[in-house]
């Protein structure tokens, strides 16, 4: 997907080190990037640091953006990779350990949706309280559109671990939201 004409001009201006253009680009994407990051790394301070690092990389590497995806998707990939690197550093390696429990989805899981309307602020906050490994898988799969195969490669786990962590996260999230509504 090619960047829009407006973004093409913005990118060209940023490449000329025009600070106003850089700030415009930053404001256009900062909120979405922050929310993506803070759901993976729930500490506000850490999330803001990661967003900062992300945009520094964006401006330093903007000349390598080839337009094969949208600018937003490209920035988001950098934000997610920076957040994953942060988690790896904190965990000294793997984000999900192989010994983490396997969870298998049951028919009951499908019959356990919290009654809509669901307050999305509660969803956001509840995701942040999930255990780290399954929280990352849920964020990448459900919210960022990654496939289990891709998540498995990134996190160096098996596809079935990615799926089971996702079902675990979904089940915990539903339970948390249900408790909140009662």
């Amino acid at each position: 997907m090619q960047p829009t004409a407006k973004n093409k001009i913005l990118i060209a201006d940023c490449l000329r080190q025009d600070q106003r253009a850089q700030y415009t680009l930053y404001r256009q994407y900062v909120k979405a990037m922050y929310h993506t990051v803070v759901r993976m790394v729930p500490s506000t301070v850490d999330a803001e640091d990661i967003v900062q690092e992300t945009f520094v990389k964006v401006f330093q590497k903007l000349d390598t953006f080839q337009g094969t995806s949208t600018l937003g998707a490209w920035i988001k990939r950098i934000a997610i990779n920076t957040a994953l690197n942060h988690l790896r550093r904190e965990r000294r390696g793997r984000i999900i350990n192989v010994e983490d429990h396997e969870f298998v989805e049951t028919a009951d899981d499908h019959n356990y949706p919290p009654a809509p309307p669901l307050d999305m602020r509660n969803v956001h906050e509840a995701i942040k309280t999930l255990p780290e490994g399954c929280r990352v898988v849920l964020s990448l799969y459900l919210l960022e559109g990654y496939k289990h195969q891709e998540i498995a490669e990134i996190l160096q786990i098996t596809v079935s671990t990615s799926k089971s962590q996702y079902h675990r996260a979904k089940k915990l999230l539903k339970a948390k939201l249900n408790n909140k509504m009662q």
Binding site: Y23, Y26, R27, V30, K31, A32, Y34, H35, T36, V38, R39, T44, A47, E48, D49, V51, Q52, F55, V56, F59, M120, R121, V123, H124, E125, L143
Partner: peptide
């Protein structure tokens, strides 16, 4: 809607950048 919940310190982050 999930990306509209919080209010990060946009100004401070920009200063750091």
């Amino acid at each position: 809607e999930l990306d509209q919940v919080e209010h990060p310190e946009v100004g401070l982050i920009w200063q750091g950048i």
